[in-house]
Amino acid sequence: MPYFDPDRGASLRTAFDALVADLSDVTATTMFGCPSYRADGTLFAVLVTDGVALTRLPDDRRGALAEQFETGPFDANGRTVTKWVQVAVDDVDELEQLRPYVVASYESALVG
């Protein structure tokens, strides 16, 4: 099963692109067959069909994120990536509430 279905995830991708449009040095690529976002070359977010994986979210922000959203680790073909936190997004309108965490992952990516 692919991580990102381009038909089912189209509205999420469009909304996420808009969410990060004002962040500088962001480029979109494809990784694991998913839209992936880099800040000055460092990965900070990966879209999955029904959510977003934040790859650089600081540990001190994870608790607050888990209080607001359903979260879990990213699973890459049976290999769990515990440093990445995957967030379920049921409705693209939720992205605005997710924005502070996306920005935190982006900022962590910028500082390496």
Rank of each mutant, 00 (worst) to 15 (best):
F74D: 00
M1T: 07
F44T: 05
E107I: 10
D40A: 11
L65S: 01
A39Y: 02
A15W: 04
D40T: 09
V26Y: 08
D40E: 13
V48T: 08
Q97M: 07
E94D: 14
R62L: 05
N77Q: 15
E96K: 05
D75M: 06
G33E: 09
T82C: 02
G78E: 09
F69A: 03
T55C: 10
D59T: 12
A53C: 13
D25P: 02
Q97P: 03
L110H: 10
V81Q: 08
F69M: 11
V102L: 09
D17G: 04
S105T: 07
Q97L: 10
T30W: 00
G112P: 00
V87L: 07
Y3A: 08
F4K: 02
D17N: 06
G33L: 12
R99V: 15
A18Y: 00
S11M: 13
R99F: 04
C34I: 00
A104F: 04
Q97S: 11
L19Y: 09
G112I: 04
S24C: 09
P73D: 06
D75G: 03
A64S: 14
V89C: 05
D91L: 14
G63Q: 09
Q68C: 12
D22C: 02
L65N: 02
V20P: 03
L95V: 01
A15M: 15
F32I: 11
A10M: 05
T29W: 07
A76N: 15
T82L: 05
D22M: 07
A66Q: 12
E96N: 08
E67G: 14
S108T: 12
Y3G: 08
G51Q: 03
K83S: 09
